[in-house]
Amino acid sequence: MSAQFVIFGLLAVTSVATALAMIFSRNAVHGVLFMVGNFAAVALLYVLLGSPFLAAVQILVYAGAIMVLFLFVVMLMGPEPAPLWEHIPGQRPLALLFGLLLAAGLIAAVNVEELTGVPGIMSQEVLERLGQPTALAQTLFERYLLPFEVTSLLLLIGMIGAVVLAKREKHELQAERAPREGGAE
């Protein structure tokens, strides 16, 4: 039992625990924080897999930028405790059942050769060779140059879309302000 196994085990338990805590947390702010922990654990797993670059991106983009954005929105909407009752009959037990079945099915699929290809022995040599950011950069800017550029376009569109969606029209603003000034709020 090498150190790697120990670290993997710790990270696996952490990520599963935070994930479960996230989906069962009553408070959205707690959920966001559990999610950050989960992302961190996964980032560490990337390191373990020999991809420090992706680990860094994961921390920066996910745990940093995206989760902060989530936190913003949660704060903007105010705390909204999840209701205890479920009004769609059978939704809760079915959701749990389907989740378990899916997990069972996917785990079963891992050992199916057609689905996974190679069952997987990773050599140190492969890790050394592929783990470097330069190798990734080379692939990205040579073979995947066009998709890379298209992705930048996609981000731009996403940005514009977010602005358009979140922007309030002037008359909307006025309509909202008027009752607020005289209202109980």
Binding site: I88, Q91, L94, A95, F98, L101, L102, G105, L106, A108, A109, V112, E114, L115
Partner: peptide
């Protein structure tokens, strides 16, 4: 067709489960 997104999601998952089950148990 109740308009509840989660019901739609549930049926999607059911479909995915069926495909997965087919691939795992009969697709070998």
């Amino acid at each position: 067709q109740a308009g509840y997104v989660r019901v739609y999601a549930l049926s999607m998952v059911l479909g995915a489960l069926l495909v997965l089950g087919y691939l795992v148990y009969w697709g070998r």
